[in-house]
Structure formats: C-alpha cells, structure tokens
Design a protein around this nucleic acid. Structure first.
Lengths: 348, 348
DNA sequence: TTGTACGCGTTATCAG
DNA sequence: CTGATAACGCGTACAA
C-alpha cells in the first residue's frame, strides 16, 4: 500500500553525468555502438547498473520510429488453436527482441477492423493477420499504407509473397479419400461458411474425391455450418433428420466434429462403429475425446515461425526466399474405421 | 508488394496548419478539452478527418507518461484456464481504453522475472500478476517502485488490498466433504507442489474434512505432484502401486485429474464406479471427458473484471471498496458417485 | 573516440 | 478561448 511515486525516473542524462560522459555516449553503449572505448563503456555500464537505469521505451520508439512490436490478429484469445499460435509466435518473436501484441477479432468484421486499427494506432512494426472478415482490398490497403502485413491461412494474389497458407482443397480431398479408402461410400460433410475460402476449398476437395471414385454427389449429405461447436451440433442433427444413409461424416474442422460427436452419441449412434468422423486442425481436445479424433494437423508452430521471420524481413526491407506453403498431415486415430454392415445406419 | 513507405506521417502540426490553429488547440480537441469553441473544434476535427490524422502513440505516452496499457502475467498463453482469463481481462480493459499486454511466465522463476521486467520496460501503467515463482518480497518491491500491482489467486499480507483470491482451504474442504457426503471413507489426494500456498491450503482443507469425520489421516494416500497432466499420471500410478484401498481421489487441479483419469482407465479402474475423482478449476475439458469431471469452478471472468477495475483505481490513485475475495462453486457432474461395495478397489 | 545540438510528435504551462 | 514555448527522453548527423 505504501507505494512511492518514484517510477524509476532516472534518465540518460543522469547516467551521463554520473559517468562523466555525454548523453550521446550513453546512448551509444545502449545501442552497442562499436566505436565506444571499452574503458568508457565500462564506466557507463556501471553507472547504469548502480543507478538502476532503464531506458524509456517511448522515447526510444519515438526517436527510432520503431515499436519493436509485431501485431497479431487472432479470432479469439482462448482455445487451443489460437493458443498454440500465440504461444509459438511469442516464443519466436521474443528471441528476435520483438513483442507480440495480440488482439482478437472475435470473428466479426466490426471487431476485426477495430483490433487492426488499434494495433495500427499502437504503431506495430508489422502485422500478422489471421483474418476471417477483412476483405482482400482492406488487407492490401493496410500493407500499402506502410505497415507490412503477413497473411495467415489465406491466399491473396496481390500479396502472394506475404501469405502463409496450406492447400485446403487437398485437405478436403485427403480427408474424404481416407474415408473412401476405408471403404466408406456414403459420406456426409459438414462445412464451414462456404463464402469463406477455406471452407469452400475443403468442400471442393470433398467433391473431387467423390468424383474420383465415381460416387454421385448428394446435396442432402452436405450441411453448411459455422466452424463452431454449436453449429456442428445443429448440422449433425439436421443430417440425422434427413433419414439418409451415411457411414461417415467429414467435418470442416475439429470443433464442429466435437459438437457432432456429442449429438451422435446422444442419438445412440456409435462412433466409429456406426459412423466414422473426421475433422480438421488437430486441436488438443482431439486426443482427450473418446474416441480420439482422426483429423488433419495444421502445423501452427511452423507457420508462426515462418510468419515471424517473414514479418521481420518485411520490416527490415530485406527480401526472403522462405517457403510459404506448409504441408498438412493426416493424423489417424480412433474415430475412423471401416464401415460395418448394418441395415440401419442412423435411427430416426 | 508495392508498399510505399508513407507510414501515415501526418502530425499534429499539419493538422494545425490545415485548420489554421495552433498545435495546442489540436491537442485540446484531441483530449476533449471543454474549453475549445464548438466552431474551432469542428474545424480541427474535419482537418483531422480529411488528412487521415492518427495521433502518435509514443509521443502521447512520452508526454503523458502513461502507456494506457496494463500488463498481465500468466503461466502460459495457451490452455483454457489462462485463455479465459486473458479473454475476460481484455474484454474489460478494452472498454476502459486500456490495452492488455500479456506475457507468459512458463512456470519458471527465470521466465517470470523476465516477463515482468519486459512489461516494466514497456512501462505498463499497472500489472496484474498470476505468479507462481516470484517471491512476496519481489512483488512488493515492484509495487513500491511505482508500478502498482494486482495479485491474482494469491494472498500477500502487505498487499492485502491488491490481492484477488479465493479460499483454497475451503475448496479442499468442500471437495473432500462432497466425497465424504457421498459415502466415501478411503479418500486419496494428489496435491500440487506443497510449497505453493494454494496447493498446501487445499491439502489442509482435505485434512480438516477428514478430521471432522474422525477419519484417520493416511500419508500413503497423499501424493505431492506438479499441477500438471504428467504429474497427475505419475502420482496416480504411485497411488495404485501402494496396493492401498481407496474409493476416491481428490486432485489438486483438473489437469492432474485428467492425467489421472487416463491412468486409471488404463489400469482397468472404472471411473466413477470403482474410483470417484474430483478436480479443481473447471477447465473446459471437464465437460468433454467421459465421465464429465466434477470439480470446483474458479470464477475467472469475475476475477478478471475485479482485477481490471482495481488496477485502474491504483493507476488513478483512487481508493476502492471492491470485494477482493471471490466465491468458489462446486460443479457436480459425473465423476463422483457413491462407492460400490467390492472387496478389491484397485487391482495390483 | 566523444561531444554538441537538433529532431521525433505530444502535452502542459503560462501569457494574452 | 487560444497561442507560444518549454518539457518529455532518446537517437543521430555533424563537428571536434
């Protein structure tokens, strides 16, 4: 409670006086200038230490016009997916002497715009965007206004060298293919919002795989949803209510699969004996569920590291030859099996 | 790629000239000073708009000596527990016009110290600490050096008005009591590191409840662990290997309970039929596990909101009469049931 | 190698 | 109500 108001107000000036040098010299040792004599450097250093000097971040940033911060836009601060992303990015940026300022977009345009504007107002040196709602044009505009942008999990042609992405079509294809290879022929899918590129692409992959197996496409086995748990539940209910036959469901992401699993179980449908399911992302939850969820792993840590490097390169205006496309990996666990022969797949 | 280097460099000076007023006046409208005439205010405003003016954060912070940021120290950026804390805090602070700068301590002293120092160097206006490793003295020292501190989930006598906490003894007591009330008599416990106050307190509550039921305390039924999943696994294995009889395990937190559940299941012990288990925290995972985990809920959102208000009060040097102790709540789910009568609780 | 002096963009004090 | 002008703390050409 007895808090003194002496917020460490020792400035470069005091250090200079105490060390018997000019402020410029102190500034030099602060910035590791090679020109300063070892002797004076030592004098200054010890002066700083004994005074408990701490450089003023704002002054430095103002003078250098650099915040030493990278902004990260995520959908949400919680959750394993973005948690891992934040974790990996912070880890990497810390080693680069940068702070990772994260702001969440909550999946709405309004909020994303606000988050981005806020980071801009805090003058981050660059931004890493995991954006659902911002338009390509807006992102390009931000980039062209002086704050370089790295785009995560999305491909924008005009910013092709600043996008880190994976092949969603392939993801959809491989997932469906895995089901097909396991002998499934009636495969339903719950997609994300189809106006979003990633959701649509995975759906495209799904259709393509069916085509390759000469399996007719049945619109009744497709439900468009929200990428969220609740959405997964509702979509699954809808699927069950059609009375259609299916032995597998491909979910556009894990979260929806988790919701779906709950509904299936509630309806007395055994997973995977009656219905196999498959998700996307590989959130941590997957391995705690019973059955463990077979899914496709997004290499978030790798993406974060690439993003950090790329961002720094953009800030320092050096060109890079980093590989921007990352590879996905199918993780086989327990939720997919060969279909059993039963007359009734789902009771309804 | 064609990024111009015109990082919005419109300053207050330009706005002033464009509006035909002095910089001081622009600054006044910027800060909602009541003295400025509606007419000139409008002129300035439109000048700002048409020029796309954006105040320079560093200059403002430097001049005002305020960062408009609150630092938050958490154990980790991922996970549901801290995710929720971050989410709630950010939500609240945003409405207060503050940024929530979060930094993670990774549960090690070294790292916590570094995180705190970093936030200090970024000159946060206050800090909210969820610290495992910093000593009371260090925290007090930080507070007394000019950056007010709010302490989460920990009680420090000298900072009693700045700690937000709950009653860990009661938590341990209520949990054990719940088991007792369900008819359990042989109750094991897996504690966190007992040198940590919260772990010890919950353990104390456990012992107290046993006493109240005149049940002898058996040291073999107590295993000290790490608060982490792996620790929960090992501790549970150890418990099983004693060959002792027990029909319930009280885990010091959910994470250890999750690990324990896995081990129990692996050992052929049915939960809750053979062994009831009970955790602490109410992480999101609880409801996805089979069986759902009975636990004690920590009101993180509430704590975050209180912390934010308290922090702002400290910054503005106004005293507050906020209630600092929050109440815990037992959430009954599926992992606790009355013990069945069987000769053998655990095979071994 | 070191020091001088000015600039960075705002806020705050004081006259007017 | 508005305008000069001195802080705020540091970086950096330029000079010495």
């Amino acid at each position: 409670m007895l808090r003194m108001n002496n917020k460490n107000n020792i400035t470069i000036k005091e250090v200079a006086e105490s060390a018997g040098v000019s402020r410029a010299t102190v500034s030099r040792v602060l910035n590791d200038s090679p020109v300063v004599t070892p002797d004076t450097r030592a004098r200054v250093q010890s002066a700083m230490d004994s005074l408990g000097y701490r450089p003023n971040y704002f002054s430095q940033a103002l003078a250098k016009n650099r915040s030493q911060s990278i902004g990260l836009l995520v959908r949400s601060l919680g959750g394993h997916y973005f948690g891992k992303l934040m974790y990996s990015l912070e880890e990497k940026l810390t080693t680069l002497g940068q702070y990772c300022m994260v702001s969440s977009g909550h999946g709405t345009y309004e909020s994303e715009r606000k988050a981005v504007d806020f980071m801009l107002s805090r003058r981050v040196d660059a931004m890493i965007l995991y954006s659902d709602c911002l338009s390509d044009e807006e992102i390009i505009e931000i980039n062209n206004s002086g704050t370089p942008v790295v785009v995560l999990s999305r491909y924008i042609e005009q910013l092709k060298d600043q996008c880190i992405y994976f092949d969603d079509v392939k993801a959809g294809y491989d997932s469906t293919r895995h089901l097909l290879d396991n002998g499934h022929r009636n495969i339903a899918t719950v997609t994300g919002p189809l106006h979003k590129q990633d959701a649509e692409d995975r759906f495209l992959g799904y259709k393509k795989a069916l085509e390759d197996f000469d399996i007719g496409f049945d619109q009744d086995l497709v439900v468009e949803s929200s990428f969220q748990l609740e959405g997964g539940k509702e979509a699954t209910k809808q699927l069950l209510s059609t009375g259609k036959n299916f032995s597998a469901i491909y979910y556009g992401n894990d979260e929806m699969a988790v919701g779906g699993l709950e509904v299936l179980r509630g309806a007395g449908v055994r997973v995977p004996e009656d219905v196999s399911i498959l998700g996307f992302e590989d959130i941590q939850l997957c391995v705690y569920l019973k059955p463990n969820l077979t899914t496709i792993r997004v290499p978030l840590a790798e993406m974060a590291h690439i993003a950090a490097d790329l961002a720094m390169n953009l800030v320092n205006n050096v060109s890079s030859d980093i590989a921007l496309e990352v590879q996905l990996q199918l993780i086989e666990r327990e939720s997919v099996t060969r279909p059993c022969n039963k007359p009734e797949q789902n009771k309804n």
